[in-house]
Amino acid sequence: METYYKAINWNAIEDVIDKSTWEKLTEQFWLDTRIPLSNDLDDWRKLTAEEKDLVGKVFGGLTLLDTLQSETGVQALRNDIRTPHEEAVYNNIQFMESVHAKSYSSIFSTLNTKSEIEDIFGWTNSNEYLQRKAKIINEIYETGTPLEKKVASVFLETFLFYSGFFTPLYYLGNNKLANVAEIIKLIIRDESVHGTYIGYKFQLGFNELSEEEQDKLRDWMYDLLYQLYENEEGYTRSLYDAVGWTEEVLTFLRYNANKALMNLGQDPLFPDSADDVNPIIMNGISTGTSNHDFFSQVGNGYLLGEVEAMQDDDYLYGL
């Protein structure tokens, strides 16, 4: 009989990166409900009104981007899968993007009042910079080529999130909001895998192009990054000028833009390196998770993995 539908066979792996990525993502599974966010309330009450406003807005922005990625982004990548195992990895990525988006709401419900939460989402859904970057990325998801969609996804996960990640990492380095930062570190750990995996899949397709096609796509890629960075610079200034962190955040953004390009197998664009980033922020990324006692409530098998900084050779991912 003619085969109508094929069963996925995990004993016949076509690309070992699919299997290793699946294992990595499932090993580091987590849920926001297991992080004791209420322990940060004392720190929260001591923040200034400007700082509280900043925290709410950066998490509102991150919620928007994770919503875009979970509802549209991963689905856009599915139409160009090379193996059935790649689709299984995307299923995991899509679910975790939803976990990320929900995690910010858990933070809001712990730290903010109902009216404050409504104000945050009102600001998020009308902010010109947020809406512009969502429009740029989503239009590529809807009309771009398979390789362009992967570029947009990597730029979103490895670059655009980091203007928001700076805030909780900064507070962590100053011994504040440790549990909020724990969630962000878990999200960063996930996004590191997502970005390198999708970048790897991009490189497979990019290497099959002619030299002329590669040059054309590379020009498009750098033009897109310039466009996104210009918008992100405006977004960053609107958020951080009030607390005086703008230039440090922009350095962090440029560093991560270079990491996104490395994920895609391309040369860095900006001169900024890890040495230029505030060491408090880099330390926040590289330290392991706190491994709270509450994990014992679900048995010794439920342990958080380590949150580690991505090394430069990680962005080559098997190529």
Rank of each mutant, 00 (worst) to 15 (best):
N300M: 11
G265Q: 09
N300C: 02
I81L: 08
G205M: 05
E2A: 01
T145Y: 04
T113L: 12
E208A: 15
Y222F: 07
V180H: 06
I198Y: 10
S126E: 00
I137L: 15
F206L: 12
L264R: 13
I136R: 07
T246V: 00
L47D: 06
G284W: 08
E208D: 14
S163H: 12
T236M: 13
K133A: 02
S98Q: 13
D293N: 11
R254Y: 03
S273Q: 06
F121E: 11
D190E: 12
K150Y: 05
T196N: 14
K150I: 01
A76G: 11
N138M: 05
G288C: 03
L160W: 04
N9L: 05
W245V: 01
P268F: 04
S115D: 15
D314K: 01
W30E: 04
A178H: 02
K24S: 12
N39K: 14
I136W: 04
P168Y: 03
L186P: 06
K24V: 01
L177A: 05
F108W: 03
N291A: 07
D314T: 00
H292Q: 08
I137Q: 10
D275H: 06
L303Q: 13
V243F: 00
T21Y: 00
W44V: 02
L186W: 11
T33P: 05
R237N: 15
W30C: 04
L156P: 06
G122K: 13
Y104K: 06
E308W: 03
E308S: 14
T63Y: 07
T72C: 12
N79V: 07
I280R: 14
L239H: 07
F161S: 12
D276M: 06
A152D: 03
S163F: 04
P146R: 08
D293Q: 13
G195A: 08
K259N: 15
L261R: 04
G234D: 14
D119G: 09
G299V: 00
D43P: 05
S210G: 13
D215R: 15
T113I: 04
L225E: 04
Y170G: 09
I188E: 07
L160G: 05
D293C: 00
Y141A: 11
A49N: 10
W10G: 06
N79A: 12
M1A: 08
I184R: 09
S238Q: 10
G199L: 10
L319G: 12
N127T: 01
K149D: 02
T158N: 15
Q311L: 07
L68D: 04
A88C: 02
D215Y: 10
N175I: 03
K46L: 14
D313T: 00
Q266T: 05
Y235C: 10
A181Q: 09
I137D: 09
G301P: 00
E306K: 14
L316I: 00
L147Y: 06
N138G: 09
I120P: 06
E233S: 07
T287S: 13
L160E: 10
G288Q: 09
T145A: 03
I8D: 02
Q214Y: 01
V249K: 11
L147N: 14
A101E: 15
I120Q: 07
N174V: 01
T33K: 15
K102W: 11
D241E: 14
E86V: 04
Y255V: 02
Y141N: 11
T48W: 00
K19V: 13
W220S: 10
I136F: 09
F95A: 01
I136C: 03
